[in-house]
Simulated scan of single mutants.
Amino acid sequence: MKKAWVEELFRRLSERDPEPRTELDYTNPFTLLVAVVLSAQATDAGVNRATRTLFAVADTPAAMVALGEDGIREHIRTIGLYRTKAANVFRLSQILLETHGGEVPRRREELEALPGVGRKTANVVLNVAFGEPTIAVDTHIFRVANRTGLAPGKTPEAVEQGLLKVVPGAWRLHAHHWLILHGRYVCKARRPDCPLCPVRDLCAFPDKTTAEAMAGPRRGPLARPDPA
């Protein structure tokens, strides 16, 4: 992997979106943590619709515990696996109060000890809430890293370790968001929009789509969805 190749790839992605942000709505580290826990096997838009009412009444661990597991469940029942997620959010809120003084911990080990929090969730919280240069590998980043040849790997953790090795420090803080947004809106699973890809000529993917193959309305390389 040539350093100049990686630098150019991230330079182009950064030109499209200099300050990328998570598409999950949150107001503090706690609501971010809850939103990411709820986002497993769910869309960010779906989570945001549910948390709009949830966070209006419970945006701290104490308020979430006071709401109770049943109350949490009523707010998030439109999200997949909502019963399990409600139990996790209730219990992690209790643990934050009992063990961490009501604050979201900044250590990976402590985050991953919370119910419903795995490595990916911990990486998102560390990156977004605390500015750590972590890279959370979801399905989009896994796909982009393998397709482009940036960091091929058979598991999310293998891809994460590969990215941490090749992504220069200057790009690492936002690398997670550039790659996830690129995978979400351009390098899509079923039909990547290669004609609009800003890194098409750098990508190792052999089955690039053509302009003729892409039908219907298109969006810019890192464009967000139109507001509902």
Rank of each mutant, 00 (worst) to 15 (best):
L179M: 15
A35G: 10
K3E: 11
A175M: 08
T209S: 14
A66K: 14
G131I: 14
L54W: 00
A42N: 15
A204C: 06
A215W: 00
R21V: 13
Y82G: 06
G149F: 02
A45F: 08
P20M: 07
V166T: 08
F90C: 10
L181A: 07
L38Q: 02
L24A: 05
T53P: 00
R11G: 10
M64E: 02
A4E: 15
R91K: 15
E7K: 14
L150N: 09
V144N: 12
L222A: 05
L163S: 00
R52V: 04
Q161K: 15
F55E: 01
C203D: 12
A151W: 04
H177G: 00
M214K: 14
R224V: 12
P20C: 09
A215G: 00
R224E: 14
R107P: 01
R77M: 03
T134K: 06
A42S: 13
L92K: 08
P192D: 08
A87W: 11
T134W: 03
R11Q: 08
G46K: 08
R147Y: 06
V124M: 08
G131F: 14
L33S: 03
P227M: 04
S14F: 00
A223G: 02
V166G: 05
N88R: 15
L181T: 07
V57L: 08
H182E: 14
L164Y: 05
R184A: 11
N48G: 09
A66D: 10
G101N: 11
V34P: 11
D226F: 00
I180L: 13
I180P: 08
T43L: 11
W178A: 12
P195F: 04
P61Y: 03
L9R: 13
F30G: 01
K165G: 07
E212W: 00
E98L: 11
I76D: 01
L179S: 13
L163F: 03
L111Q: 06
T60Q: 01
A4T: 14
E7F: 09
R200Y: 02
R184Q: 12
A228T: 07
A151F: 05
T60I: 02
T84S: 14
N48Q: 07
I76H: 02
L150Q: 09
E7C: 07
I76A: 01
T155H: 04
N48P: 08
P152G: 03
N127P: 12
A175K: 07
L181H: 15
L222C: 04
R191G: 00
V137I: 03
S93E: 02
V167C: 12
E15I: 13
P115C: 04
P18H: 03
A145L: 12
L54N: 01
Y26W: 15
F205K: 11
R52E: 00
E110R: 09
T27I: 15
H140E: 06
